[in-house]
Design a protein around this nucleic acid. Sequence first.
DNA 1: CCTTTATTGGTACGGTCGTCCCAATAAGTG
DNA 2: CACTTATTGGGACGACCGTACCAATAAAGG
Lengths: 194, 194
Amino acid sequence: MTAASTPKGERRRQALVEAAAQLLAEGGFEAIRHRAVAERAALPLASTTYYFNSLDELISAAVEHAAQAELEAGRRRLAELTEEHHNADSMIELMLDLLLGTRSRDGGLDQVLLRYERLVGSPRRPYLAPLMRELSARLHDLLTEILAHFGVDIGRQHLLELIMLVDGAVVNALIESDPDPRATARRVLHSRLG
Amino acid sequence: MTAASTPKGERRRQALVEAAAQLLAEGGFEAIRHRAVAERAALPLASTTYYFNSLDELISAAVEHAAQAELEAGRRRLAELTEEHHNADSMIELMLDLLLGTRSRDGGLDQVLLRYERLVGSPRRPYLAPLMRELSARLHDLLTEILAHFGVDIGRQHLLELIMLVDGAVVNALIESDPDPRATARRVLHSRLG
DNA sequence: CCTTTATTGGTACGGTCGTCCCAATAAGTG
DNA sequence: CACTTATTGGGACGACCGTACCAATAAAGG
């Protein structure tokens, strides 16, 4: 069964999803294993197969959970913006937070790496494709809203170009000897929006 | 031991590297397993640990072998260029072949996917970092030579921007419902060079 | 209360994995 | 030739993996 019909069951199922999302953030798709998830959630191994028909289903739930949380955090950031920070710099930093993750601020690489592994690893997991497209569309919407909020009126095509530039900057920064993808991406955004 | 001291031994070692490179091209890093490599090379399992101290060493050798072959093929292509094909279109197609692989011509996705998995997966394999940087530098050299051969004088910074654009176009095309990363990348190059 | 359904958790199966061991054999060398 | 080193190939070990089974227990519904 893939659904719980009892409050406690629902709580356990959710605990598994959150544990899987944590593992995803820490070690990528490959870190989501039945045993690892169960241990992280302090539940028995078989609970993972009881609430999810397969590992893929669990991975999907984890990806969706993680992405929803990221989008919500972004919306909260947008809502909390005060007038005093209405400059291009803070807009760009907010965009970078959404595209690369907030942990990239202090030079951390792991979160950036995970995001691009997720991106590139998705075609190998066909069951993720519709979900990824949906989440990608929502992210684009949010970015458009953010730009609009800062008075930047941007067309869909121009936004996609911006995202392409950032992504290209990141994947190329990843193999440098002292990688700082956020700095590279920031330079790109400044040259286009700054 | 990591080296062979006998002609036959050297041949076997090379057979393992080629088998590993084949598997890498077919299924990515994860496809390089002791047993798979040995079977592909029609050699016993233990030969893989006899000639390579670890799986990482075998993976490194496979990556280097594959990349060298790609670079050599690119150089051959450059040398074989005749005057009749001296137009921007054929230059761009050659660049796309080098950046995305020749199998992307007919819309094939797997080779493109493999290349970007290799790119994004490299930071997780620190032993690959120096090798990847070396190979990346050689690819940049080759691309510069190609552009120069077509009369395009391009600075290092401008070349890097071009590559960034292509890579960004590709990773974003990968999650589309009917992905054609080569077409997207081609559009980008035409808008900059065409 | 009792029956039916949902959940629990311990365990087992069959598989793949990296790595190691070791006797048998080939190759190289004096 | 003998002796030393390189190589071969078969097998085994312990660790993980996804998944399935099943008796015991808790919850829900009449």
